[in-house]
Amino acid sequence: MSGIVHAAAAPGAVGAYPHARRVGNLLFLSGVGPRRPRDNGVPGNVFDADGRLLSYDIEAQCRQVFANVQAVLEASGARWQDLVDVTVFLTDMQRDFATYNRVYAEYFSDAQPCRTTLGISALPTPIAIELKCIAVVADPS
């Protein structure tokens, strides 16, 4: 079984791509950021009058990105425990890694996917974290 997944409970894609794609028993999630599905806002972001980002709350963004991953998994017929690989992109590894690592441990205490964390210079929207995930899902037959 293969197919494209669009998750109504997740924020819309910022480009021409699906939330996820299933190929056989593998589920590949597109990059998932911390935008809120209801208004596309990023929790904890503070902007000046000209729209420049002044500060952000990495903990709030971590919690929202994990909620968004959960929404995509559920729309795909998968569970949190089905995750086998998580790649995390942080825009400020030095400032944010400890907080991200603490929050990650809360969400992944039972599920233990492989994990890679990368420090990068920017993401395409004003976010500080993005996840790229792979899950293994049971065959529905």
Rank of each mutant, 00 (worst) to 15 (best):
S2F: 11
A8S: 12
A10Q: 09
G12Y: 01
V14G: 12
G15N: 11
Y17K: 09
P18M: 05
R22W: 02
V23C: 04
V23E: 09
P34A: 02
R36Q: 09
R36F: 02
P37Y: 00
P37N: 03
R38E: 13
N40S: 10
G41M: 09
G41W: 05
G41V: 02
V42T: 06
P43V: 05
G44S: 04
D48L: 02
A49G: 02
A49W: 02
D50R: 12
G51T: 06
L53I: 07
S55R: 11
S55M: 08
E59D: 12
E59P: 03
Q61D: 10
R63K: 14
F66E: 00
Q70P: 10
Q70L: 13
A75G: 14
A75V: 05
G77W: 01
R79Q: 15
W80E: 08
Q81M: 14
V86G: 04
T87N: 08
L90G: 08
L90C: 06
L90E: 11
T91E: 10
M93F: 14
Q94D: 15
R95N: 06
D96N: 10
Y104E: 11
A105G: 14
E106C: 05
E106H: 13
S109A: 12
A111M: 07
A111E: 09
Q112N: 10
R115G: 01
T116Q: 12
L118F: 11
L118D: 10
I120E: 01
S121P: 05
L131A: 07
K132E: 05
A135M: 07
A138H: 12
S141F: 07
